[in-house]
Simulated assay, not measured.
Amino acid sequence: MAAENPSVSGVSGRYATALFELARDEKSIDAVKADLDRFDAMLSESADLKRLVRSPVFTAEAQLKALTAVLDKSGISGIAANFLKVLTANRRLFVVSDVIRAFRALVAKFKGEATADVTVAETLSDKNLDALKTALKSVTGKDVALNVKVDPSIIGGLVVKLGSRMVDSSLRTKLNSIKHAMKEAG
């Protein structure tokens, strides 16, 4: 399965595939995905957690102890928690974001969903997320899972990447094209 999907390759792809197959066998794909999504959100919000995950200066034991405390406090348990602990014990916690991305791709493929990477300047409301999902579903004919990333540097608008297609309606891009056009005109 990993070879069929180019976004699921390498070390992170192998870990994601193993996790997906285990979750599928245990009929807990949605629970594992929810736990990984929660961990991914915590990772994007906490500089300390990012440092714990990425820094090679922590020993595996120190990483595991800190990670266990984080997982216990956040209520992440079961397969997802055990998987994150295995990544830590194998000194592979630094690839966790890639593993989560690959796992999401496998889940989407399994469910017949398309996955869109969306970059926004600020967090979208549930109403706006639903509107975006509906618009993308009308284009693809499939349910669309969203990987939303907040990047204030785009100033406003959205950048949507769905498969090989990309729509960049960010204010930054529009301003750059206006600046470029004015340079050519002047």
Rank of each mutant, 00 (worst) to 15 (best):
L64F: 07
L64I: 01
L64M: 11
L64K: 15
K65F: 07
L67H: 00
T68N: 12
T68D: 13
T68K: 14
A69S: 14
A69I: 09
A69P: 00
A69Q: 14
A69Y: 00
L71N: 09
D72M: 11
D72Y: 12
K73F: 00
K73L: 04
K73P: 00
S74Y: 00
S74K: 10
G75N: 09
I76V: 15
I76F: 08
S77I: 06
G78C: 06
G78I: 09
I79V: 15
I79L: 14
I79C: 04
I79Y: 06
A81L: 11
A81P: 11
F83C: 08
F83V: 07
F83L: 03
L84Q: 02
L84W: 06
L84V: 05
K85W: 02
K85D: 01
K85C: 02
V86R: 05
V86E: 10
V86A: 12
V86H: 10
V86M: 13
L87Q: 05
L87H: 03
T88N: 09
A89I: 13
A89D: 14
N90M: 05
R91G: 02
R91N: 13
R91P: 01
R91H: 12
R91W: 02
R92D: 10
L93D: 04
L93Q: 07
L93H: 08
L93I: 07
F94E: 14
F94N: 13
F94S: 14
V95H: 05
V95G: 04
V96W: 00
S97C: 06
S97P: 04
S97H: 06
S97G: 14
D98F: 02
V99N: 03
V99S: 04
I100Q: 03
I100K: 03
A102H: 04
A102L: 11
F103G: 10
F103M: 10
F103Q: 09
R104G: 15
R104D: 15
R104I: 10
A105R: 13
L106N: 05
L106C: 09
